[in-house]
Measured scan of single mutants.
Amino acid sequence: RVIAMPSVRKYAREKGVDIRLVQGTGKNGRVLKEDIDAWLA
């Protein structure tokens, strides 16, 4: 299970990103909004 705040999950869904593919850089591997942006870049 991916650790991410609900707002980040929603952001990823809106961008069409599968959050399971994104490498989290936050505490304990948490996926941050910046990680979604970096994955899209």
Rank of each mutant, 00 (worst) to 15 (best):
A4Q: 04
G26N: 02
P6S: 08
M5Y: 15
D37H: 06
L32W: 05
V22H: 01
Y11V: 02
D18Q: 11
V17S: 01
R30L: 10
W39Q: 10
D37N: 13
A38D: 14
W39D: 03
G29H: 11
R13V: 08
S7D: 11
A41W: 15
R13G: 06
V31R: 03
W39R: 15
R20I: 10
D37M: 05
N28I: 08
E34T: 13
G16A: 05
L21F: 14
Y11G: 01
G26W: 03
G26Q: 03
I36A: 00
V8L: 04
A41R: 11
A4K: 02
G16T: 05
A38E: 15
L21T: 15
E34L: 10
D18F: 06
G24H: 05
R20Q: 12
N28F: 12
V31G: 00
T25Q: 07
V22E: 00
A38S: 14
E14A: 14
V8W: 02
Y11T: 01
D35R: 00
L40H: 09
V22N: 01
A4N: 04
E34W: 13
G16F: 10
R20M: 10
D18V: 07
R9G: 02
R1E: 14
K33D: 03
K27N: 12
L40Q: 06
A38P: 01
A41H: 09
G26R: 02
E14P: 00
D18R: 04
G29K: 10
L32Y: 12
V8K: 01
E14D: 12
S7K: 13
N28V: 06
R30P: 02
I36S: 00
K10H: 07
M5L: 10
A4M: 05
D35Y: 00
G16M: 14
R20K: 15
E34K: 15
V2G: 05
P6D: 06
I36W: 00
E34R: 13
Y11Q: 03
E14K: 12
I3S: 10
T25R: 09
A4P: 04
K10E: 06
K15V: 11
G26A: 08
A41F: 15
T25F: 04
T25A: 03
D18Y: 06
L21Q: 09
L40E: 07
I3K: 11
A12W: 02
K10M: 07
A12V: 01
E14N: 07
K15N: 07
K27R: 10
R20T: 07
R20Y: 09
A12K: 00
K33A: 14
E34M: 15
K27Y: 14
K33P: 05
A41M: 15
K15R: 08
R1N: 15
R20F: 14
K15I: 08
P6N: 05
A41N: 13
R30T: 10
A38K: 11
R13I: 09
V22F: 04
D37R: 07
A12G: 03
V17Y: 01
L21S: 14
G29M: 10
L40P: 05
L32T: 07
L32M: 11
P6C: 07
I36N: 00
A4I: 08
R30A: 10
I19Q: 01
A41C: 10
G26D: 04
A12I: 01
G26F: 03
P6M: 12
L32D: 05
Q23P: 13
D37Q: 11
D37G: 03
L40R: 07
A4F: 03
K10G: 04
A12D: 00
V31Q: 04
G29T: 03
E34P: 12
N28A: 13
A12M: 01
R9K: 10
N28E: 15
V2M: 03
Q23G: 13
D18L: 09
W39G: 03
V22R: 01
A38G: 07
R13A: 12
L32N: 09
K33N: 06
L32G: 12
K27I: 14
L21I: 11
V2F: 05
I36T: 00
A41Y: 13
Y11R: 03
R20A: 10
S7R: 08
S7W: 15
I19M: 06
N28P: 01
K15M: 09
G29D: 09
G16C: 07
A41D: 14
D37A: 04
G24T: 03
V8D: 05
A12N: 00
P6E: 12
L21C: 09
V22P: 04
A12Q: 00
Q23T: 12
I19K: 00
V17F: 03
K10R: 12
T25M: 06
E14M: 11
K10Y: 07
R9H: 07
K27D: 13
L32I: 08
R30Q: 07
E14H: 08
G29I: 02
L32S: 07
M5S: 04
D37P: 01
L32C: 09
R20W: 13
W39E: 06
G24M: 03
K15A: 07
D37W: 05
I19Y: 04
I36E: 00
G29F: 09
G29Y: 10
A41T: 15
I19V: 09
R30Y: 11
K33F: 15
R1W: 03
V31S: 01
I3L: 08
I36M: 01
G24N: 04
N28Q: 15
E34A: 13
A4R: 02
E14F: 11
S7H: 13
